[in-house]
Design a protein around this nucleic acid. Sequence first.
DNA 1: ATACCGTATTTCGTATGCAATAGACCAAGC
DNA 2: GCTTGGTCTATTGCATACGAAATACGGTAT
Lengths: 226, 226
Amino acid sequence: MNSTDALSARRVARPAPLRQAVHEALRDLIVNGALRPGQHLVEGELAAQLGVSRQPVREALQRLQSEGWVDLRPTRGAFVHTPSPEEAVQLLGTRAVLETHSARLAAGHADTGHVERLWQLQQEGLDALGAGARPRRLVTANAALHAFITEISGNAVLAELIAQVDRRVRWYYTPIARPRGEDAWKEHHAVIEAIAAGDADRAESLMRQHTERTTEFYRRQIAGAP
Amino acid sequence: MNSTDALSARRVARPAPLRQAVHEALRDLIVNGALRPGQHLVEGELAAQLGVSRQPVREALQRLQSEGWVDLRPTRGAFVHTPSPEEAVQLLGTRAVLETHSARLAAGHADTGHVERLWQLQQEGLDALGAGARPRRLVTANAALHAFITEISGNAVLAELIAQVDRRVRWYYTPIARPRGEDAWKEHHAVIEAIAAGDADRAESLMRQHTERTTEFYRRQIAGAP
DNA sequence: ATACCGTATTTCGTATGCAATAGACCAAGC
DNA sequence: GCTTGGTCTATTGCATACGAAATACGGTAT
């Protein structure tokens, strides 16, 4: 994929719309906590701080709303969304269902290249785990593995939905939660084996167990932390 | 272009959020087929025909993109999304999974008022069926029942996701498909009973059967008619 | 305190201008 | 024929400026 990647990357080097840059910038600011939940986002200020005009800011806010990052109150403006524990639990449950389904599909579509990459991601997770837990990194490795399973499933609709839900839920629990650690990666191992074997039923069932444990884990963190 | 008439007919006078009115107007025009898949939506034309300026149109298009109605190509503009049969199948499958989950949750939350309303919706569907109904009406009744089950589930995240997926999938298959008829309503009956009894496992299982049959039904229609 | 009133702030929509670019059209060259 | 190259046009993307309407704020009178 090397040379091809570089080439296609260059060919696809379209002028990235400014509104998209603004969208990502604002999303990152929200995720990082620079913009706090409930905070009023004033178009003019954001525009000035980002060095752009108000128009791309407004379009970015529009998109941020449909992704659940901000609430747009008519005639009042944009406010950083304040996630409730309830909502977090709902997001977790929904994501679990979607990922369970993606595991089933993945088992039906995985080729040897996919499986190889899966083991590689699994190994990276274990390495991160071994190298003295940095929570952030583990969460990232976990997300990468799950995202790849979803990609294998070959269902773009499902992938997009999971991505949406995942962005939001991750934002919620990163500040309060620690990753589950070794148990989670053992469960991954089993899921990957099932996918590699093309055993859809088993892959689904194992993924269900895994995601339900994860959900339960974070549900407790949420109940104990806010 | 004869779409001028249809568009100007949608002119909206409400002072509240104009961009939202535009968003809904455009979405309806896409659903109704006045704006056809692949068609290039020129901001200036839309603005003129709706009697608004370009800005609310742009914001509406932004949102329509994130809902999958249009594709926004940088520096090229908006094009009505062309759904592939593949995508329709993916939407169907995803919706099935989400609704199966919502049935389980509904069984855990339903009170007597909910159940009463469920039977009422069921009856309306049967009436529509008996009255030599128009397919359209059956599809609507069906959608109403499913939406209410989702509402009972008490999971706003799930509800929003299902609504998103449902709008898109319904748009795709309405032109080609006929509703399933009596069988489907018998299956509804069973699901409602399980929800009324608070039997989550049974409700989930029955809903899974139901949605999988529906998915399979439409999958065949799509395979035979695209 | 409470009700009322005026002002400041901000959104929302309008109008306009302009640079950049993708695509269409057309012409010449292999 | 079919590529290649150049010009033209339509459209987007962004900036800027402006006005109207809604809301919040703060002060004053009751």
